[in-house]
Design a protein around this nucleic acid. Structure first.
Length: 241
DNA sequence: AAAGCGGGGTC
DNA sequence: GACCCAGCTTT
């Protein structure tokens, strides 16, 4: 079965500015966060689920508490749902405690305690969508997998002149396609972290800090002719797979 | 495509 | 009071 899809081809000059600027900035200004000291997929999973629509500052203490109480995926699988929820419910979106519990039990029973290493398998687990699957693939396993969270969505949308608030399938596909196209080979772990820090610290939702932005020179938001910018920045070409 | 889930923070 | 936060599932 042959499927036809479009994939993004980004202007090489703009891509170089973007990748180089962001990586250099990240090595200097990037945040030091607890889940960046590990590549354990279980730890990455816990951090990502807790971070759904929840600020880093709020999650940090809960993340530490959670892993202190449930150090391994087996510990979590054997725990009671009630105790799990005691830790996670105060964050809101209370279904997340159940998701983590179910995922842990699935990893133990269906995957023999070995964390799945493919997007397809990860996506089959409750509470793991396209973003979280990409995060585990890149942060835990180091694969060249793209991510698109609210930070990256906004950053890429602004830089490449895409209406990132539009929820249509076409727009979402374009943004994912760009997120995939810009990952530097073999460097997804660092690059994806850099993208999120840029979105969280520079390209913020309100009052973005364009004056100190390392990629402002290439950004469509600051371009002189924004209406023409889009088609000159990214092309979409057919791909058969 | 849009609603629902949610506590906590900012402006 | 409106908007935002390392999203996902259901309708």
């Amino acid at each position: 079965m042959k499927r036809i899809k479009y994939h993004a081809v980004v202007d090489s000059g703009l891509l170089d500015i973007f990748q180089t600027g962001i990586q250099r900035w990240y090595r200097q200004e990037g945040r030091d966060l607890p889940w960046r000291h590990t590549t354990d997929p279980y730890h990455i999973l816990v951090s990502e689920i807790l971070l759904h629509q929840t600020t880093v500052k709020t999650v940090e203490p809960v993340y530490r508490r959670f892993l202190e109480r449930f150090p391994t995926v087996t510990d979590l699988a054997n725990a009671s749902l009630t105790e799990v929820k005691t830790i996670t419910d105060p964050l809101g979106y209370k279904i997340r405690g159940q998701w983590l519990h179910q995922i842990a039990q699935a990893v133990v029973s269906q995957f023999s305690g070995v964390f799945p290493r493919t997007l397809e398998e990860l996506l089959s687990l409750p509470g793991i969508g396209r973003y979280t699957a990409g995060a585990i693939m890149s942060f835990a396993f180091g694969y060249d997998a793209p991510i698109l969270d609210t930070n990256v969505n906004r950053l890429i949308g602004r830089y490449f002149a895409i209406d990132y608030k539009d929820s249509s399938a076409e727009t979402k596909h374009q943004l994912w396609s760009i997120a995939e196209a810009i990952v530097p080979s073999g460097q997804a772990r660092e690059f994806n972290n850099a993208l999120m820090d840029m979105g969280a610290m520079i390209c913020t939702a309100r009052k973005p800090k364009c004056l100190i932005c390392p990629v402002a020179v290439g950004c469509a938001m600051l371009a002189e002719q924004p209406t023409r910018a889009a088609e000159e920045r990214v092309q979409y070409r057919l791909r058969t797979e």
